[in-house]
Amino acid sequence: MNTKRVLAIFEKDIKDFFKNTSLIIMPVVPILLAVFYNALFDDFIPLFTIFIIIGMVFAGVTSYCIMIMMAEEKEKNTLRTLMMSPASFLDIIVGKSLVAIVMTISTLLISIVFLDVYHVFNLQTILGSILLLLFFILLGIGIGLFAKSIAATSVYIMPIIFIFGFSPMFDLFGLEEGHFVNVIFDALPVSLLMQASDEGSWMPLILITIWVVVAYLFALFSYQKNKNDD
C-alpha cells in the first residue's frame, strides 16, 4: 500500500463527496433524528433509539457512501482509469474507505453529542463499533462493485438500512422470548452491538467478527468478479 496514493484518492473523494448532493444528505438524517429524539425524550432515551441512530449512521453513511462512490467509479468508467494507474486496488479501497470513516465518525460524534448518551459507550461498545465500521465498509464495497449501476445501489441500500440499520427496533414488536424473528434480529450486527453495550458481554463481539468475515468474503467475491474483463 502506498500512503501518498491513498491520500491522493482520499483528497479527491472528499472533494467529490461535498459536491455530491445525494451523498451529503446522508449524514444529515441521523443528526436530525438525534436532535428530534433528544427533544422527544426529556430525561431517559431508550437504548433501542440510540442504537437505531447508530445503525442509521453505519448503514446510511458508511455503507451507502462507499457503495455510491464505488458504483459511480464503475458506472462512469473512472475506476478503470484508477486501476490503470500505479495505484493498487488496496490503495483505491483504503482511500475511499477513509472518506466513509471520516464521515461516519463525524456523524456519530455529532449525533452522540446531541443525544448526550456517553454512558452507552463501554469498552465493548467502542470495540464493537470499530468492527461494525469495518463490516459496513466491506458490505458497501461489495455491493458497490456488485451493483450494475448507481441506480441499482438505491435498491440495495433499502434492505441494508431496514434489516441491518433498524434491527434494534424489532425489540419494540414485543415478540415472545425465543421467537425465531427475535432470534434472527438479535443476531444482526447492530443488535449485537446493543447487546454488548447493555450486557457488557464479549460474546456479541465474536459474532460481529463473524459478520465482518462474511462481509469480507462478499467484497472479495465482488472484486474478483470485477477484476478484469475476461
Binding site: K4, R5, L7, A8, I9, E11, K12, K15, D16, K19, N20, K76, N77, T78, R80, T81, L82, M84, S85, P86, A87
Partner: peptide, 26 residues
Amino acid sequence: VLSDNSALYERLSIYDNLKLTCKLYD
C-alpha cells in the same frame, strides 16, 4: 492508456482531475 470510454471526474475541475493523476504517478 486512453480509450473512447475513458472518463473524468465530472464534478471536479480540470486542475483537480490532473492533480489526482500527478499524485498517483508521483
